[in-house]
């Protein structure tokens, strides 16, 4: 009976994890993907830990599983908030067309990938004159 309850809870948790992963794969911009991964991922992992607590049953396992669930529930919203804020500020693309945080947070004009794409050329351009002047001194910036 206990095994049956544990398996049901486990199946629910794995379904949540699988749906969260499907959202991470299928959604279009980083904020939508975060919406899938933080909430459904937290519930799925918590349900799997609860299943472990139910199936194992001894006091140590139950305490550790409850502490893990508490830790996940306390930290994943914080991590999601920080990551979403950083993604917005760094200018990652928004596919929905609306920008509710316009004027509230500073936002870069283009995404971080567009801004860092020219770094290899700039480094090469900065290194090339030094290499021409002093062939052995390319390590100097």
């Amino acid at each position: 009976m206990i095994a049956l309850i544990a398996v049901i809870v486990m199946i629910a948790g794995v379904i949540f994890i699988a749906l969260a992963t499907a959202g991470v794969i299928r959604f279009q911009d980083p904020l939508q993907r975060m919406h899938a991964s933080t909430k459904a991922g937290t519930v799925g992992a918590s349900l799997c830990l609860a299943a472990a607590a139910i199936a194992m049953g001894d006091l140590g396992a139950v305490v550790i599983a409850l502490v893990s669930i508490l830790f996940l529930v306390a930290t994943l919203p914080v991590a999601g908030h920080l990551l979403g804020r950083a993604a917005y500020i760094s200018g990652s693309p928004l596919r929905t067309g609306r920008d509710a945080l316009k004027g509230v947070l500073p936002r870069a004009k283009s995404s971080l990938d567009d801004r860092t794409r020219s770094i290899p050329q700039r480094v090469a351009a900065a290194v090339a004159p030094a290499a021409k002047k002093k062939p052995s001194g390319t390590r100097k910036r």
Binding site: V24, G41, A87, P93
Partner: peptide, 19 residues
């Protein structure tokens, strides 16, 4: 496609690893 996508995927992988 971007850095933010990769970091979100890392967050997801953490949840999968705990499970």
């Amino acid at each position: 496609p971007g850095y933010a996508d990769r970091f979100v995927a890392l967050d997801m992988l953490t949840g999968v690893a705990v499970s």
